[in-house]
Design a protein around this nucleic acid. Structure first.
Length: 871
RNA sequence: GCCCGGGUGGCGAAAUCGGUAGACGCAAGGGACUUAAAAUCCCUCGGGGGCAACCCCAUGCCGGUUCGAGUCCGGCCCCGGGCACCA
């Protein structure tokens, strides 16, 4: 063993050992309990950032820990290789996305390997490989057969200048990111997956996931948003009948059918057929509908914009009173939501109240508060107005409670054919069409004679040509006849291949199944998924709490229904990592876009007492930039911190130790490398402690009677081991596990006993630190374990068992409180009864001063810990 | 706007089931070693008062429950994540 710790040499040796022994390559073994430990696969953006290091270190710690616990551990890795950033790179430097992506994968794989993660690289996959995405296509065709995939129109962001569809991310303050043009909404045909068919199961099965964080389950439940309510049809008044040239009714969905008699207006979306019909002879309305069409499709935008509406001049009739009710077009009603129409009850709904007040519409209270929270409904809005109560002024339905009113009204509506009870979900079907090049082609052919024709299975995969490069003016597949010109599989005539590609969430919805059988050329999955699935521990960023995790759950259920897998849920335990945040700096460019600068290139200075920021550009210029607050490390905000600098300077173990010590894994972490010195210093101290110990020759095993300091060190060591075992195994709190090892090393440092008995106790303590930390800093522990005289590597060792006998204590400290305030401490023999604790406490000088003859009213004793005397 | 989190010393944090607030580490200050620096080691380190023993204040803000609240409840402020085409 060298006297000086050389991280590069230590890490090289350990990594070579794992590689030579194929330590992390695993096979199915029916005789051993498996543990599938999975971290979310990265997008190959070019470089790892600290968020990745955090994510993959958590996974690796758990994988190595479970391995030492005797499990057959699978930890795979792959690449979420399709997506927008590759197209953006192509636009700015002309490199085809395929090449850019593959280069990034090469680089990032090397970075991951340098961190020493125990990954079975033989299972690596990239979602842009035809051998992977052909099965997206294959399953899509199965979904089409089952009616789970279907075609209809959907709304997208349209850039009128570039004549192209924009991602939400590319819409900045309502304008196209490249052109600065005002974005419009446009309806185009798209393919959807019928996830709403599974809404009830996706909601109900959350209960089968005790290993998921509560907050994620709450978010998913709210997202699915099951609500029980009524569908109500308002028959057209004569004016609407005329405008629509038909009889009919305007359908709405409401959870508050009890307030039906308080409906004083109906609000419809701008795209609603009645709105379009009314606009025909109404230029003002046509202009308003046009205004609503502008802007992005994002819900956040729709929800924060000023609520505006305009009367169509048309009416419907109240289903019971036949009273005419005006129809308004409102910008807050979304066409893709329910019926694209809502009934306005201003007296009992805050948004309707606001709308009615603004537009001078009648406010008709039809619910009386049962708690007397209000007498009259009047401005300003009072949240009690929307509470349940007793119906009033509701004709034959007056005087009913909420439930009775809804039941009676629904029954009456149903009798007249004007409504019924219905369960509605907030969840919408999953639109998977993307008008983009760098994705998995949707395997369909459009034939003038036969219509939409699926690509036959034997022609899969539909290969994505890899030599194209987008230039910002739309999907290059549209301009590539070699791709889109084809023969109709049915009639053989000339036909056009679908040029839309799939949402990349499709790719990430089942990659964890493919890891079980990455070499299977004849099927999507095979029997090996039966061994490995479900994933025992999934680790990934909290930002994926809803979409990715919900889509994966849906996909698993679809595959189950197709008989491809047996499990109901893909991820048994979920650890949602908190994001690593960093500062965001940007400036506006001449073209009206934003250019982002890495915080490493930004300096703050003061000018006239105001803090300003300057960035150095790649051309070496200095330029003034704006501070945009904190945000997750990402490619688009250019605020990632590459771990390479840290690894180069301190080694991978220090980088791993530092990120794990910084905070508990679920917590958001604001990036700062202050403190990395401490991690490095600790590893060097551990190294020299082992060096100083072993250079005096081999030590005995602990046996026989010990001195008090020896017993104390043994107790500290066993206490640390118990804490690490619980912190990693149950609590998943790595920072406190590391702190326990640091405390133990401090105790070893203070322990000064060169006798054979003392050396044996020190050997035991150093071994416990080495094995305890080996999942976190595996390279250095690999070297130290050998230095401590072991043949096997730590990865092959079983996790040590706690020696309970060594943990026992003879006396305990009891905290004494008077009226809840700390006033003293007493020491008593472990396990004495309450009376003895009370006696010892009252005998204490400090304590008796505070009691001072006052009568003791109450005594509370927490055994082994605390006594509170109330006077 | 809606849904979900978070806020504790100069900084990252700990306090696991309502029971000692600040473990462990960083930074800072002081000292030892050194020709010097680095490294290493030792000491101090939430605020205020006191010669001291000790006492008072303090977990974003306001209020409540409790013998006892960082932890539970109600209201508010700020920060972060998600909002369906970033992944």
């Amino acid at each position: 063993m060298d006297e000086i710790y050389d991280p590069a040499a230590v890490e090289r040796a350990a990594q070579e050992y794992w590689e030579r022994h194929r330590t992390f390559e695993v096979r199915e073994d029916a005789g051993r309990q498996k543990f599938y430990c999975l971290s979310m696969l990265p997008y190959p953006s070019g470089r790892l950032h600290m968020g990745h290091v955090r994510n993959y270190t958590i996974g690796d710690v758990l994988a190595r820990f479970m391995r030492m616990q005797g499990r057959n551990v699978l930890q795979p890795m792959g690449w979420d290789a399709f997506g927008l950033p590759a197209e953006n790179a192509a636009i700015s430097n002309g490199v085809p996305p395929a090449r850019w992506t593959r280069q990034n994968i090469e680089y990032m794989r090397a970075q991951l390997k340098s961190l020493g993660f125990g990954i079975d690289w033989s299972r690596e996959l990239a979602t842009c490989d035809p051998s992977y995405y052909r099965w997206n296509q294959w399953l899509f065709l199965r979904m089409l057969e089952k009616g789970i995939a279907y075609r209809r129109t959907g709304v997208v962001n349209w850039d009128p200048v570039d004549q192209t569809v924009l991602a939400n991310e590319q819409v900045i303050e309502g304008r196209g990111w490249r052109t600065g043009a005002l974005v419009e909404k446009r309806e185009i045909p798209m393919y959807y997956l019928h996830i709403t068919r599974y809404a009830d199961e996706l909601l109900g099965d959350l209960e089968k996931l005790p290993g998921w964080p509560e907050r994620v389950k709450v978010m998913q439940a709210n997202w699915i948003g099951r609500s029980e309510g009524c569908e109500i049809a308002f028959p057209y008044a004569p004016d609407t009948r005329e405008a629509m040239s038909a009889d009919g009714a305007l359908k709405v969905f409401t959870t508050r059918a009890d307030t039906l008699f308080g409906a004083t207006f109906l609000a419809i979306a701008a795209e609603h057929p009645i709105a379009l019909a009314a606009a025909a002879g109404n230029p003002r309305l046509a202009a308003f509908i046009d205004e609503c069409r502008r802007g992005s499709v994002m819900e956040a935008d729709a929800a924060t914009q000023q609520k505006k509406g305009l009367h169509t001049g048309l009416h419907v009739l109240h289903p019971f009173t036949a009273e005419p009710i005006g129809i308004w077009v409102a910008n807050y009603v979304l066409m893709g939501y329910g019926e694209g129409a809502v009934m306005g009850v201003p007296a009992h709904d805050e948004r309707d109240f606001e709308f009615a007040t603004k537009n001078n519409l009648r406010i008709a209270p039809v619910v009386r508060s049962m708690t007397g929270a209000y007498e009259r409904v009047q401005a300003p809005w009072n949240p009690a107005y929307s509470e349940y109560g007793l119906t009033v002024d509701s004709g034959e339905f007056s005087g009913l409670t909420f439930k009775a009113a809804v039941d009676a009204i629904a029954a009456a509506l149903e009798k007249r054919g004007l409504g019924r009870k219905r369960t509605q979900y907030r969840l919408r079907d999953w639109g998977i069409s993307r008008q983009r090049y760098w994705g998995c082609p949707i395997p369909l052919i459009h034939c003038g004679r036969c219509g939409e024709v699926p690509v036959p299975d034997e022609q899969l995969p539909v290969l994505l040509p890899e030599d194209l490069a987008p230039d910002g003016s739309g999907n290059p597949l549209n301009k590539s006849p070699a791709f889109h010109q084809c023969a109709c599989p049915k009639c053989g005539g000339a036909a056009r291949r679908e040029t839309d590609t799939m949402d990349t969430f499709v790719d990430s919805s089942w990659y964890y199944m493919r890891y079980a059988c990455p070499d299977q050329a004849r099927a999507m999955v095979d029997g090996r998924v039966g061994y490995w699935l479900p994933v025992d521990q999934y680790i990934g960023g909290i930002e994926h709490a809803i979409l990715h995790l919900l889509y994966s759950r849906f996909w698993t259920k679809v595959m189950r229904d197709l008989g491809l897998v047996r499990c109901e849920e893909p991820f048994t335990n979920l650890l949602t990592q908190g994001m690593v945040l960093n500062h965001i700096y940007s400036c506006a460019t001449a073209e009206g876009r934003r250019r982002y600068f890495n915080p490493a290139d930004v300096r703050a200075k003061r000018e006239d007492g105001v803090e300003i920021f300057e960035a150095t550009t790649s051309e070496g210029e200095t330029i003034r930039v704006q501070y945009g607050g904190l945000g997750k490390m990402s490619k688009s905000d250019n605020n990632g911190v590459d771990p390479e600098g840290l690894i180069g300077r301190y080694g991978a173990d220090t980088a791993r130790l530092f990120i794990m010590f910084a905070s508990p894994p679920e917590q958001t972490l604001e990036w700062s490398d202050e403190g990395v010195q401490g991690a490095s210093r600790f590893i060097r101290r551990l190294w020299s402690a082992v060096y100083e110990h072993v250079r005096r020759g081999p030590a005995d095993r602990v046996k026989g009677a010990q001195s008090t300091p020896q017993r104390d060190l043994r107790r500290s060591a066993q206490h640390a081991l118990a804490k690490v075992t619980d912190d990693i195994g149950r609590r998943r709190n790595f920072n406190t596990a590391i702190a326990a090892c640091m405390e133990l090393l401090n105790a070893v440092g203070r322990f000064d006993d060169p006798s054979p008995g003392g050396r044996a106790v020190r050997q035991e303590a150093l071994e416990i630190i080495t094995l305890s930390l080996s999942p976190i800093i595996p390279h250095v522990c690999h070297a130290l374990w050998q230095a401590l005289g072991h043949e096997r590597a730590p990865v092959e060792e079983p996790w040590p068992a706690v020696d309970e006998a060594a943990l026992a204590q003879d006396t305990v400290e009891i905290v004494v409180q008077i009226n809840g305030k700390l006033r003293g401490r007493v020491h008593v023999a472990a396990g004495v009864d309450e009376a003895a604790v009370r006696e010892a406490a009252l005998a204490d000088e400090q304590v008796s001063k505070f009691v001072a003859g006052k009568p003791v009213r109450k005594v509370i004793v927490v055994p082994g810990k605390l006594i509170n005397i109330v006077v």
